[in-house]
């Protein structure tokens, strides 16, 4: 089957019910998207499908033909994504970093949908787990991106 990932068409040889996560990681060698739970619980595997944040561990590839998939590898090619990365660095968000691909994807999806999300929007959209407890930093970075710059943490 053919998948459009980061603006490129990839010929993929995988069973129809293979989750996108494993096609990305194993078939295509794109390991920036992470496996955390495999059960749509943690968000480490988040990618964008037609701009919508999607958990790739439970999204099978047969549902994705004809869609545009964006992964963390191409995030800086997107203007909003590049700004998110810049603020992630500025606010020193990551600790172990394992959840952060997913966090950056979720933040990018939110900001592409609403340029200036309210705190309530942020709470509703930023639901990925982080075991290192970087939540205050994630919030600070997004507040900054939303024009609510607070004290640096």
């Amino acid at each position: 089957m053919q998948l459009n990932i980061n603006g490129q068409t990839h010929e993929v040889d995988a069973d129809a019910d293979t989750p996108l996560l494993w096609v990305l990681r194993d078939n295509l060698g794109m390991t920036g998207t992470k496996f955390g739970c495999g059960l749509a619980q943690c968000g480490a595997c988040s990618v964008l499908v037609d701009g919508q944040v999607t958990r790739s561990c439970v999204t099978t590839v047969d549902m994705l033909e004809g869609t545009e998939i964006t992964t963390i590898e191409a995030i800086e090619q997107d203007d909003v994504g590049a700004r998110v990365v810049e603020k992630w660095v500025e606010h020193q968000v990551p600790q172990c970093g394992y959840c952060q691909s997913g966090q950056v994807m979720a933040a990018t999806a939110l900001l592409k949908e609403v340029a200036q999300p309210t705190e309530e929007d942020v709470r509703a959209a930023m639901i990925n787990l982080c075991r290192c407890g970087t939540y205050n930093y994630i919030k600070a970075a997004i507040d900054d991106l939303s024009g609510r710059k607070g004290e640096p943490l």
């Binding site: 990681r25 194993d26 060698g29 390991t31 920036g32 998207t33 992470k34 496996f35 992964t71 963390i72 590898e73 995030i75 800086e76 990365v85 992630w88 660095v89 020193q92 968000v93 990551p94 172990c96 970093g97 394992y98 952060q100 691909s101 950056v104």
Partner: peptide
Amino acid sequence: VKRLDVYDKSTGRAEYSIDVTVDGMLH
């Protein structure tokens, strides 16, 4: 001093054990 690893960790470039591959590898 700013962390040396945040850019790689914000762009999916950081490599963990689970990401490592070698030639001829099986899973």
